[in-house]
Write a protein that binds this DNA or RNA. Structure first.
Lengths: 323, 323
DNA sequence: CTGAAAGCGCTTACAG
DNA sequence: CTGAAAGCGCTTACAG
């Protein structure tokens, strides 16, 4: 003890009030020599702030969201907050349970990465504590939302194929319950129509964002005998599945068919051939979500702008030859 | 209130002592109708048990450890514990800081996935709270260690190549600071020697478990003009890099060179061609680590056996032709 | 079997 | 600017 009351120590630690310089020095010394570190559990009980932020992701081992988790951890850590990761498993009911559990643990805020929860449920949640949600646009007090421009990304990807001379461009869509899946399909269609091409349902294959569904879509496409020279898959995982199916069916990428993905997963650079795709910076998404949370916590209204989608041309696309 | 003291409620909630049936019923009713849920923060302060387990992983977005995180979350969740994930970033110093932070948050135990921390540091840690560590063998009170048989896995992989008639088998090794990297190299060498082949340093390329290092290793190998018909990469990521380099240098897999990886990452099935590899069940590793932790927490001495490595033959390897 | 009491380690009005 | 007091919501010896 440095001759002062616990209250004073607490105030110094939290910067809650003005303290005279000599007392502050005495306390700082004592803290340093004792190696004192405040107990976050006690702080949480007494002050109501646990310095932890709940993060509900869909799967801890998602190749896409993994980068976002890293970004969140980095950014939150800088401010002294710890993330509490839980997985929602793509189920609204499960997400709701996760949020309940997080609130029970008295997290100071919650970040929801995409998710199936209704806008209403999220807004309700934000009445109790700060909420940041990605993958949708939503207005509510104490809530911030971050949304990538998937329409534009898909438009870019499709336009790239069109610019290479492709006209018969198949599209493997994502799970239509996802807003991003719908936006990407809209972008595909818009690019086609801007080029004066009709949207041909025979070239649009349903998928669900998994490799399996990409592979199956290509199998069906080939079996349908619908002519095509290029494929745009609504995410990289489906593009990987598509690439395998093309290989099985003896179509060379890009000699016989050009292939474009979406997300720019770590594996895209190393697929054979390296995949042309739309860069979707998960890591930055996580960082920006964390920054937004920090601002909400500080009582500010965050104004976050996500980076625009960027086409990354690699080796899975090429000029249509002999077309 | 159901006409009993808080102490009694607490005892019922925790099963700490025997309570008469009528009181128990009254309390259960009250709990149900009030929707009462105990506050874990207060429990943590008062009882010293926070029902949370610290998990130090190396990277939240690792394609391999992701599965382990999922397994841990599932298994711990069943028992009412929450994992607290932090990333050590492959640095002993950083891991030490993570563990300190976790202990500050009064986690009830710590699971360390691989990591660079010394055995001594880990044993010391186990003097304070239960510790489970993977990727090494270590004996200490209140500590459990889980180790895969990497030697055997590498032996299997190499033997597969030998059985296909390959004699000039290159090996891309992992970061030699990792025990698993060393074990896999030992396994490679043992299989070779068992087949009466000499270990040829010219066929052994250093790598560091990244795709880049796999690609570079193959570039160097080809430039060295050392003849080879097969490559065994000490993990799938390096195998992916190797596959790309082979593609660039116009070597077909498996027609010109057979390729084997290690880990059986999610992407291995979808690489082109699908990669022959050694199955390394990360998800089970996580589950078993969690089970071991639960046992330690219960005061038992866990006796965990990890599944034996299994070779998964896919399409990147084939009989040496014309050899 | 059960209650009253003290305490976990802090923070925050409330006075001065 | 600073202290004494009460309290956050539980648990756990201590008595009965």
């Amino acid at each position: 003890m440095a001759g002062v009351s616990p209250s004073t120590v607490s105030r110094i630690l939290n910067g809650t009030a003005v303290v005279s310089d000599d007392k502050r020095a005495a306390v700082d010394n004592a803290i340093a020599s004792l190696g004192f570190v405040p107990n976050p559990v006690a702080r949480g009980l007494a002050g109501g702030r646990t310095m932890s932020i709940g993060v509900v992701t869909q799967a801890l081992d998602s190749p896409f969201y993994g980068g976002a988790l890293r970004g969140i951890e980095e950014e939150l850590g800088r401010a002294g907050y710890s993330p509490l990761f839980v997985s929602g498993r793509w189920s609204a009911a499960h997400e709701a349970r996760c949020i309940e559990a997080l609130r029970l643990r008295h997290v100071d805020g919650i970040i929801v990465l995409t998710g199936r929860l209704s806008d209403a449920a999220l807004s309700e949640c934000a009445q109790h504590l700060p909420v940041v949600v990605t993958g949708r646009r939503l207005q509510a007090p104490q809530l911030a939302s971050l949304l990538f421009d998937d329409f534009e990304g898909a438009r870019l990807a499709t336009h790239h194929l069109l610019a290479l001379g492709h006209r018969r461009i198949a599209f493997i869509s994502g799970d239509s319950r996802h807003p991003d899946a719908k936006e990407r399909r809209r972008g595909y269609r818009a690019a086609l129509e801007a080029a004066g091409l009709a949207y041909d349902p025979g070239l649009v294959l349903p998928g669900d964002f998994t490799e399996d569904s990409g592979r199956d879509a290509v199998e069906r496409l080939i079996d349908s005998r619908e002519p095509f020279t290029a494929i745009f898959a609504a995410n990289d995982q489906m593009a990987f599945g598509a690439a395998l199916a093309l290989h099985r069916r003896k179509r060379q990428v890009p000699a016989d068919v050009s292939l474009v993905g979406y997300d720019d997963l770590a594996g895209a650079v190393y697929s054979v051939p390296p995949l042309t795709t739309v860069h979707h910076p998960a890591n930055e998404l996580g960082q920006l979500a964390a920054v937004a949370m920090l601002k909400l916590l500080a009582g500010e209204t965050p104004q976050v702008a996500l980076p625009a989608p960027r086409l990354i041309v690699r080796e899975s696309t090429r000029l249509l030859s002999g077309g």
